[in-house]
Design a protein around this nucleic acid. Structure first.
Lengths: 228, 228
DNA sequence: GTCTATATAGGGATAGAC
DNA sequence: GTCTATCCCTATATAGAC
């Protein structure tokens, strides 16, 4: 706003026209992919929505796959974050609840990736391997958390129980939105935020039976609050 | 084999040439859909595989969607079967194990339906509504089974626990093969039967924490047998 | 019932002018 | 950077001969 020259060099130059179009393409692509499903969105649709020509789109991205790759890369940065290590067990339940909610939010933001996981991953080896790395990190995080809880006396579970629990948590977290969508597509499209909280709740229900003591009662309290 | 005329009228006439081609189309379509994914299989591929012309295929089926509908209808007949009601709790665990295995086998047989559930159901309202009915029946069956187990003193769970458990069982059962596929596509393609048994195990692990008494020890025994 | 040939449509991607 | 025009390819589906 000010016309007085700043004594500080700006940290980032203003985005060029080109960079802005590029960003707009990414944003609109994400929105359309999420709304219609990636395979139902053509480069033509994207260009139309932006009021630019198909040729222009192909100036910014070599092909449709490159758009998907950029979006996946953004997703990866946001999802591949470990939860806080556990200090005291009761507050760990609240930390976990928040962490899960954050993860579900990010899955929701990039839900087109989850809609047709199989197809996308089959088409593209790089996506597949990166997605498997993410899942692997999550599996490790869950294992670590469970072991911490066991050590802290907040959880009772054998190693095979923890292994199976980790897999079940991953399945439910990965496919929860798909499952909800299946049910609700028929009826009224209700608040998406509700889906996310519901997903957190379902995952917590998987963990709950193995908890003991304060952690258990604390989680029960959190879940009661949800049910009401 | 015998040339002596049978005194009984045959129950079904031998299939006509037309009926045979029709059946062959359905069989090959199912195989290709399962192997490559429905959206990657064209009517041309199906005709090629059968060494018939595309025109011939369209003589037997109005379009590709009609083939999918027939396959779905076969699937529906086989999957929409309720488990046996529970008599004594320990043997119920074995019945359940077998029932789940049968269900997973049938999902495996028609796994192309599960690969892109979202797309298929979004395209076709009839498929969607029927699939939701199937899921609804399964949900009811799980609820009923849990209540029986609680009444029999073999299970300890509140109503909200049972509700959440039913949903989690449905998610894991519905998406287990997809999840396994995600992991294993990268590496060696191992025995598919293993995937099915693994799915049964994962579902049983969801149920296990709520069991008490003989049912619990019986299921523990079954699961130990799996782990070894 | 089965074939060949073809109509129709749509999507991905490029060339070249501006 | 952006546009117009167009090419190429693939998939669904049909027409009409045999």
């Amino acid at each position: 706003m000010s016309i007085i020259p700043s004594p500080f060099k700006p940290l980032a130059p203003p985005p060029s026209r080109s960079a802005r179009t590029r960003e707009r393409i990414l944003k609109v692509s994400l929105d359309l992919f999420n709304a219609e499903g990636e395979s139902n969105v053509t480069t033509g649709h994207i260009a139309d929505e932006l009021d630019i020509s198909p040729g222009n789109l192909y100036y910014h991205f070599r092909n449709k796959n490159e758009i998907i790759h950029h979006l996946f890369s953004d997703f990866e940065k946001q999802i591949d974050i470990a939860p806080e290590p556990i200090n005291d067990a009761p507050s760990a339940m609240e930390d976990l609840w928040l962490y899960l909610h954050m993860m579900f939010e990010r899955i929701w933001q990039y839900r087109f990736l989850y809609r047709n996981l199989d197809d996308l991953m089959a088409r593209d080896a790089k996506l597949r391997s990166h997605f498997n790395i993410i899942i692997g990190h999550k599996r490790e995080a869950i294992r670590g958390m469970c072991n911490s809880l066991v050590d802290a006396g907040a959880m009772r579970a054998t190693a095979p129980m923890i292994e199976a629990l980790a897999e079940n948590i991953l399945v439910v977290a990965t496919y929860w939105l798909n499952y909800e969508n299946l049910k609700h597509r028929a009826g009224i499209r209700d608040d998406p935020k509700r889906h996310l909280t519901r997903g957190v709740y379902q995952v917590m229900r998987l963990l709950a039976p193995y908890l003991v003591g304060e952690a258990k009662s604390h989680l029960d309290h959190l879940m009661d609050h949800y049910t009401s």
